[in-house]
Design a protein around this nucleic acid. Structure first.
Lengths: 106, 106
DNA sequence: TTGATACATTGAAATATATCTATGTTTAAG
DNA sequence: CTTAAACATAGATATATTTCAATGTATCAA
């Protein structure tokens, strides 16, 4: 099973700075220097985090002159949420034959 | 902001064994000894992982005699997915005024 | 009470991660 | 060609995480 790849993608969101970056990109594209001003971290640390977010597919980017432009990847986000859903789900919702007791807790 | 707590919850799913456990619980409640037979890990390691999953709220449990019974928490899963959605999302979907370019990539 | 089963806790070792300083690369302006 | 800005890479350090062996606790059966 491809757990390793999924773990790698989920780890993209297990850092406070990377969560802050996701929120910072929520309203549109930004360059690294913009992000640097919002996050109390050094430039190499930002570079490290952006590489992880880009590798995960959650963030798109392109280079323009000296600037790296980052943005949320709608496709990456959708795939990410579907992947999360494959683990964080409850079959009770759709399958009457299972008996994990979820319905009792609603 | 409460990034720290969210990071802690997301970390619940950043381990191959814990993902395997979530799948193993997908079709209903199981005890620790059942899970032990499916996962090539020792009992203390399973205990460690179950504590993390339980703390995250994704997994419910109750003790019955010698056995610990574990199951997916429908409520926990729903809250988890909503939390993930607050970071892994794209405002383009619902807000025409933003310009992160998501639409172009669909 | 004794022994066995299920599970938790402790402590140690190996590995992974986040962060910084220092330095390198690329681009553009003067 | 120089310089400065934006970003990447390398190396070091501190911290976190995973895992296991050893041990402790609780429950139940004989």
């Amino acid at each position: 099973m491809g757990f390793r790849e999924d773990v790698k993608k989920i780890k993209a969101l297990t850092d406070e700075n990377r969560l802050a970056i996701m929120l910072a990109l929520q309203h549109g594209e930004k360059c690294g220097c913009d992000l640097l001003e919002e996050l109390n971290i050094t430039q190499p640390t930002l570079s490290h985090h952006m590489k992880i977010l880009a590798d995960s597919g959650l963030v798109d980017y392109y280079k323009e002159g000296k600037w790296m432009h980052y943005s949320i990847s709608a496709k990456g986000v959708q795939e990410f949420r579907e992947m999360i859903g494959s683990y964080a789900r409850c079959d009770c919702e759709t399958d009457e034959s299972v008996s994990c007791g979820c319905k009792d807790k609603k």
